[in-house]
Amino acid sequence: MDASFPGSGDKPIAMLVDDDAKVREAMSNLLNSVGIETISFSSAREVLEAKLPDRPSCFVLDVRMPGLSGLDLQRHLQANGIETPIVFLTGHGDIAMSVEAMKAGAVDFLTKPVRDQTFLDAVSNAIATDIARREATLTARKHAADYETLTQRERQVLRLVIGGALNKQIAFELGISEITVKLHRSNMMKKMHANSITQLFTAWQSLPERVRRGDE
């Protein structure tokens, strides 16, 4: 690792993985010159053993490295549930290799020597993707936490509301009075921080599938 970095925060950081120190330093220098912080690794193994920062970030991977290749590292990261976007850099990449990388979720596949603007755009793009991804994850986590606060009855009401049932139908379904349904529904909306059915639906959609299927 070339630099110490704060473990968490909002400043984006690019993680460079290349076995060639010269290329690592040069790419890092280029990113620093446009204000992007960097952290460098000399091998895929080093990445897997490191504690990765909890910040908006992206990987810049060299495809061709001794030991684990960039494509191998991509597979390992996915297997570990790390969804940080990846930009590939390669000396001599063929079409099959790039297709494989892109299919596996790479943001970009660039051939060395790469033009500076192309590279910087690809990294910015990857970081933007990561920011969006992190936000989505954060919202989903918040919604899941909200959902956890609901009572059993409120969850039943939520499920029926999402299914498009009217209060009257819900009351019939659950065998309770319509007034009680309204009370549960208002509590549920408050707890889920939803002002409208649309917001409630978005929150519902972000919940893990396990919750939505009702496998609790």
Binding site: D20, K22, V23, E25, A26, M27, N29, L30, N32, S33, V34, R64, L89, G91, H92, K112, P113, V114, R115, D116, F119
Partner: peptide
């Protein structure tokens, strides 16, 4: 590949230099 590595470094550093 051997030539690409230093060339890539030169290109990136030259751009950074400018910036």
């Amino acid at each position: 590949h051997e030539l690409n590595q230093p060339l890539q470094a030169v290109v990136a550093n030259a751009n950074a230099f400018q910036r």
